[in-house]
Design a protein around this nucleic acid. Structure first.
Lengths: 247, 247
DNA sequence: CGAGCTTTTGACGGTAGTCAACTGCGGTGG
DNA sequence: CCACCGCAGTTGACTACCGTCAAAAGCTCG
């Protein structure tokens, strides 16, 4: 499940070259290097964090896609958010003892480990990095707001199209794609758990969207067929490109 | 709508005495005093922040209850979260130019103003306050997670009971109540917009909960009639008491 | 006392859930 | 090599939760 080998130094961080993440100064790279405690590697389906566990670290996702979810005792499950390369993972879990959510990996993944107490020092040593951390937290909250609007006020086809556009946007931001397609191995059950639908109804809606020529979503990836119609249906108004900071 | 008179000095901040918010040290009080730029007062129904506007400040809610919401072009609306005394308001709106949500006040309210650039300095001058800020942001995210689970995976009666318990818990935390009742003037339309339901179905569900002796929700406040059954129905596992930091 | 709001009620319809069976595919093992 | 298994995706029938529409009843305020 995990092995901490072949650690990448921050100065050679592959995220620096992706073109969509804001580069760090040399001094900041030294600081992140000082904070970095190691790496974690996961296979597809691996659990970064289990519900009910205390985690004293936060992570940066170097490579791969993950999702955060909550489970009820009776088995109902809700996927709350997705994580792409460059994202901070585990801020809540670090504050929150113990975490009331789990984090699982959709693809093979690699994470940098930052221990809690060093995070604390970041605020003192480089306030602008602390500020970036808060920026990332605020952005994640904005994503949750949009998700809430979708679950509360959109129909199934609007929700699913919205999810497709959201994932595509995150794919663009993190340098995973430059087209209207994104290779993401998301099962229909996972789509259903994200959008608060049953698997059966998710399936029928996906087929309807394919027939209508809006979104073509397959087990190994999704493709927006008609961007204009998709954005209109989903009520999606964000551009696909945006520069993000990362740590 | 607003008037900036009779500003309260931080050393006399009424939140210090509430017993459920973690007190600040004298040095921290001096720092917050230095950051504080004034106060805002609102009447019931006032708008702290309008959707689509850039806000260069963040606020601490000194007194009153507010809610944050998103509106779609066709009028559908979703209430995303509630704010109680001691909460930070506007972190996202400060990062996010322009805000894609609005904030409105349920009761007469009073807020402290902290300009963005001074927030920036907090991280440098007192890292532990920066850390608390991040703590509050993480907690708000946790609240959104729970809300997402409710909207995605709970039935109407579960959702509404969950909301009642959530609001009661926030009321306890912020010192507004010590009983199973909370004076909060929330219309059924607002409950509906919070829980992603229609007004009609909200009404019928509220009556059912009243008949079943679980929650008695009236226009001017709510009362949990049977705490055990309410918590079981809502799948609510948090205790009503928790100490929060504030700034 | 009437305007305008929120709450309430009843009838009807539609979106989405449940149940159950079937298909297709990759992996395992006889 | 192919039968068998397990899992994801698919389909149809039936159900129920919840939305929409419409109208009436209470409340608050001018």
């Amino acid at each position: 499940m995990e092995s901490a080998r072949a650690v990448i130094p921050c100065r050679k961080c592959p995220l620096l070259d992706c073109g969509t993440l804001r580069p760090l100064t040399p001094a900041q790279l030294d600081l992140t290097q000082w904070m970095k405690n190691g790496e974690l590697h996961f296979e597809k389906g691996g659990h970064i964090l289990a519900q009910g566990v205390i985690s004293p670290h936060i992570y940066t996702l170097l490579m791969g896609i993950a999702f955060r979810f909550k489970t009820m005792e009776d088995g109902r499950r809700q996927i709350v958010n997705f994580h792409f390369p460059g994202d901070i993972i585990g801020l809540q879990a670090m504050m929150d003892d113990p975490a009331d959510h789990g984090i699982e990996v959709l693809t093979p993944a690699r994470l940098c480990i930052f221990p809690r107490r060093r995070i604390y020092d970041v605020f003192a040593r480089d306030p602008s990095l602390g500020y970036d951390l808060t920026w990332l937290a605020a952005k994640e909250e904005t994503a949750l707001d949009d998700h809430l609007l979708a679950l509360g006020r959109r129909r199934a086809d609007e929700r699913i199209t919205n999810l497709a556009l959201f994932l595509l946007k995150r794919g663009w931001e993190s340098g995973l794609t430059r087209t209207l397609g994104l290779a993401i191995p998301l099962s229909q059950a996972q789509i259903a758990d994200t959008m608060g639908l049953s698997v059966v109804h998710t399936n029928k809606t996906l087929q309807s969207l394919r027939r209508r020529g809006i979104v073509d979503w397959r087990p190994d990836g999704l493709r927006i067929v008609d961007l204009d119609r998709a954005m209109e249906l989903a009520g999606f108004d964000q551009s696909l490109e945006q520069v993000r900071p990362f740590i």
